[in-house]
Amino acid sequence: MSHVSKIEIEIKSLWCLKMACVRLGFQFKENQKTHKWYGVVVNPEKYPIPEGIRQDQLGRCDHAIHVPEAEYEIGVIKVDDKFILVTDFWDTKLKNRIGENGGLLKQAYAIERTIQEAKKRSFRILEQRVPNGVRLVLCN
């Protein structure tokens, strides 16, 4: 071992996000400008609006992700050079499918992004399921 780093995911590739949706069985609705949510902000002190988004922007997006069996949708909003995912977590079916704070969707995105780049650099890739996540081993 030489070093260990922890990374906080930022979504920058729309193509990899689409592939992540395919991996999880979601529908990516490109250029859909609105996404389904409750419609009204409830208790903003306890559930604050995400950073980089204003209240009048809620419900509007650049693209949307539809999760089967869920009532609400995930909005994909472009801010500068990255994409923010916005959704209404009151839908428990949606929350269960994408994980706490969208963890499973972010995981799928990170897998696709890593595999895409590793293939470009001619790495051999091994994907393994581990108890609390997924492990990708890149060898060259």
Binding site: M1, S2, H3, V4, S5, K6, I7, E8, I9, G99, E100, N101, G102, G103, L104, K106, Q107, A110, I111, T114, F123, V130, N132, G133, V134, R135, L136, V137, L138, C139
Partner: peptide, 16 residues
């Protein structure tokens, strides 16, 4: 090897 562990909560751990 470069080992990338992506946890279910979205956290990423990179190890060489």
């Amino acid at each position: 090897q470069i080992i990338v562990e992506i946890l279910d909560d979205g956290e990423i751990r990179i190890e060489t």
